[in-house]
């Protein structure tokens, strides 16, 4: 599958773009310095550390300070301790958003994983048009989220929904379903859109994982019938577990702090029933201008993410060790 010749050509081109040529007037001293592992490591890490330090570490500290202050737009605030956190915790909308975020992350990730796994198994087989199907499966992943979410919003439109039209014509419903105009429906719609968008990433990555599995087991990885299911469970799945966990970690991070999708689809409405932490933090901090309170709400996300990721990584390490 991997064509070595094309790969070689690609690498030369890629390197020219990415890397500066190491020309120097004092090659020898530099060479000696570069032989030192510590010096080389420091040099290699410098660009990443500088950029992340400037654009994450510093803003992060500022963000933490904001969350402890009464800053609002245009007004420098004073230190108020954990007042913003306490206020958020006692806020009914915050609690809804907090619960929603877990609900949304859990179901969306579960769907992405199961459907993505299924799709990966299907795509791992040989069939005509495999290439084009694989490429087209990635489409949802590459359209800018806001734009594809607009397409979905148009499909879920309270008045013009094509899905309602379809169900109506098929005599399955007599009144329109309140896709986005009901909190519960709205949340599920968001989960559907998130799944649609994120599943290809799961499928392609898991497909990559499947391809590392010994080709002799290829046929075993198709899911046909009870026998196939058993083979999947005892042969494929254990080998695929590490990859799966990595993908899930990344997906959970993305989904937990999702913003664009809800912002476009429902804006957090109706009556705040579909807010996630990110959209609520945005509404409080950026739209209303209460920067301190907004920062506090955002910070609530961090420990949760941290714990989830830590658990997953620990699990991964233990498996690697075993």
């Amino acid at each position: 599958m991997n064509k070595p010749i094309a790969g070689g050509a690609g690498s030369a081109a890629g390197l020219e773009v990415v890397l500066p040529h190491p020309r120097t007037t004092q090659p020898q001293r530099l060479t000696r310095l570069l032989e030192n592992e510590r010096a080389l490591a420091a040099l290699l890490l410098a660009p990443a550390v500088v950029i992340l330090g400037t654009f994450i570490a510093y803003p992060f500290i500022m963000g933490v300070w904001l969350s402890l202050s009464s800053t609002s737009v245009g007004n420098a605030g004073e230190f108020v301790g954990v007042k913003n956190f306490a206020k958020a915790w006692n806020d009914s909308i915050f609690r809804t958003a907090f619960g929603n975020t877990f609900f949304y992350t859990f179901w969306a990730t579960l769907f992405k994983l199961t459907l993505g796994m299924w799709l990966a198994l299907l795509l791992n087989r040989h069939f005509r048009g495999k290439r084009i199907v694989r490429a087209s499966m990635l489409l949802p992943f590459i359209v800018p989220t806001v734009l594809s979410t607009f397409a979905w919003r148009w499909m879920f439109d309270p008045t013009f929904s094509v899905l309602n039209w379809l169900l109506f014509r098929a005599d399955l419903i007599t009144t329109k379903l309140p896709f986005l105009s009901d909190g519960t429906y709205g949340m599920w719609c968001a989960i559907v859109v998130n799944t649609w968008r994120g599943m290809p990433f799961f499928a392609i990555t898991l497909l990559a994982g499947l391809q590392t599995i010994n080709p002799d087991l290829h046929e075993a990885s198709s899911l046909d019938g009870a026998n196939g299911w058993k083979r999947f469970w005892y042969v494929t799945w254990p080998l695929l577990k590490p990859v799966t966990i990595v993908v899930v970690v990344f997906s959970v991070i993305q989904t937990f702090s999702d913003f664009q999708l809800i912002y476009v689809l429902t804006g957090g409405g109706p009556a705040n029933s579909t807010h996630l932490l990110a959209t609520y933090a945005y509404q409080v901090g950026v739209a209303t201008g209460l920067l301190g309170e907004g920062a506090a709400i955002s910070l609530f996300m961090l420990p949760v993410l941290f714990v989830v990721v830590w658990l997953q990584l620990r699990y991964l390490r233990r498996m690697e060790g075993a």
Binding site: P158, T159, L180, S181, T266
Partner: peptide, 21 residues
């Protein structure tokens, strides 16, 4: 009222009105 209104933005009712909904 049209109960879809929970999810309407400022443009939705224009659209609904003009298409006779």
């Amino acid at each position: 009222c049209d109960e879809g209104g929970f999810a309407w933005d400022d443009t939705s009712n224009n659209r609904a009105f003009l298409s006779g909904e």
